[in-house]
């Protein structure tokens, strides 16, 4: 295995495009090194991106949104009070990944590119309509976060392409988001089910909603119909029960060592209700 530490994205892309065999980009390493150690993936080339200036920065954009550099670890996002105020659901997603130790290293971009159906960082991003800036051999492009993972362990990124950062839109007034996941312990587990909800209110009424499930299908599920049930309501018990039923109905889970189909289906509805309530109260301010 060769280890490279490029100082520009252009160099990183050039290295990746010209590399023989298996290439992996290294950010926090919390997935890549586990795969390397277990023999699951033996890269021929490891390209450490953390030497690229600016890659570990969180910046507010001119339009009031956010740009999160690819190498920003979870703990740094949690420490950014303005970002947490805007997008608490996005931040709590990545902050739920692993331990304090993992938080010092694990990144949203890495969580996205690892393409696990259970990634805690992804549903919140998708609910927030986040995009990724993708740099490749032919320049850079903007892609919707929900279009990046295409299945367990696979992404829509072309060979040589790398994500330089993730872009969150302007939060705007009367908005709130939340992410909840179910795990058997209090910490350190992979999500059995995850659910992110992003709302905007006008007075007491929901005017915009996005509901996203994780770990119940090969990729995150965006539930426009379930979200539509919330629009125009003040999230009464009746609407929440309908939301739960819609979320459960949309699930396409598997049974595995972490949970059964029945359990995931049931709990998806429970989390949708609970996340919607939190998002609503945040939107109310």
């Amino acid at each position: 295995m060769r280890y490279h530490r490029p100082e520009t994205f252009e160099e990183a892309v050039r290295l990746a495009a010209g590399a023989p065999g298996v290439t992996r980009f290294l950010l926090g390493g919390t997935d890549v090194l586990v795969q390397l150690r277990s023999g699951m993936v033996t890269p021929d080339v490891m390209i450490d991106l953390k030497g690229i200036p600016g890659i570990s920065k969180v910046m507010r954009t001119e339009d009031g949104g956010w740009c999160i550099g690819a190498a920003v670890p979870g703990s740094k996002l949690g420490a950014n009070a303005d970002l947490v105020a805007d997008w608490p659901g996005v931040v709590e997603g990545i902050e739920l990944v692993g331990s304090t130790q993992i938080q010092s290293r694990a990144t949203l971009t890495g969580n996205l590119c690892n393409a696990s159906p259970a990634a805690d960082g992804v549903p919140g991003l998708v609910a927030a309509s986040a995009t990724a800036t993708v740099v490749g051999p032919h320049g850079s492009r903007i892609a919707r976060v929900e279009d990046i993972p295409t299945g367990p362990g696979s992404t829509s990124l072309e060979p040589g392409e790398v994500i330089s950062g993730i872009n969150l839109p302007r939060r705007g007034e009367n908005g709130g988001d939340a992410y909840l996941r179910f795990i058997p312990r209090s910490e350190m587990d992979i999500a059995v089910v995850g659910c992110a909800v992003n709302l905007r209110l006008d007075g007491d009424a929901v005017v915009e909603a996005r509901v996203v499930l994780g770990a119940v299908a090969p990729t995150v599920l965006v539930l426009p119909d379930a979200a539509e049930l919330l629009v125009g309501t003040a999230l009464g018990e009746g609407e929440l029960e309908k939301l739960a039923a819609a979320a459960s109905a949309a699930c396409k889970p598997i049974s595995d060592k972490r949970g059964t189909i029945e359990f995931r289906t049931e709990v998806a509805g429970v989390l949708a209700k609970r996340a919607a309530k939190i998002a609503y109260s945040r939107a109310k301010g």
């Binding site: 530490r5 390493g29 919390t30 090194l33 586990v34 130790q101 290293r105 350190m188």
Partner: peptide
């Protein structure tokens, strides 16, 4: 695999699992 913390060290003041960082880094 970063699940037990027995290898915890600090790097530039941040707590990490030393099994999940390359020596080269």
């Amino acid at each position: 695999t970063g699940d037990c913390g027995a290898c915890s060290v600090t790097v530039d003041g941040r707590l990490i699992c030393s099994c999940l960082m390359l020596g080269a880094e």
